[in-house]
Amino acid sequence: MTGPVATTITTTINGAEHRIDRADGRMLLDVLRDDLGLTGAKYGCGMAQCGACTVLVDGRPARACVLRTGRVAGRNITTLEGLAEPDGRLHPVQQAFLECEGAQCGYCLNGMVMTTLALLADTPAPTEAEIRDALRHNLCRCGTHTEIIASARRAAELMGDRNA
């Protein structure tokens, strides 16, 4: 690493356009958390191993802890903060994780929610095997796996209701 480089980009985050200075040598996760105060995405490992930092880039899940900010110029980024309605009503995926006790300590939850959201966009009615496959690289240490799988199934139901 050669230290921060004074590169400026623009990108869309949760529907609003942002100009980010000092973009190039920095990871998107640090820009989100340190510059923009968007702390929904978490630092868990810094090596794309745990998924706690997951954000959506053009709808696809991405590990913000290893994603150089310079590479998201002109992209559309969604973070956990961008899911709820403006009036605070939770997104169905968030609602599902709430109902099914998907959170214990809550630290891995961002990654679970964002990855589930991406899964359901592609596969609205996933099998349990598909859910496990989608979430297999998202780590949880509280041992909330059973509730997380249940939350993802419930999320599919709630999304189905909303789209029906």
Binding site: L80, E81, L90, Q94, G106, L109, V113
Partner: peptide
């Protein structure tokens, strides 16, 4: 009963240690 802090956790607004800027 559901945990009362659940809404904060699912929305990313529960503040963990390194989240005070």
């Amino acid at each position: 009963l559901d945990r009362p802090e659940g809404p904060l956790k699912v929305s990313g607004t529960a503040t963990y240690a390194d989240e005070y800027r």
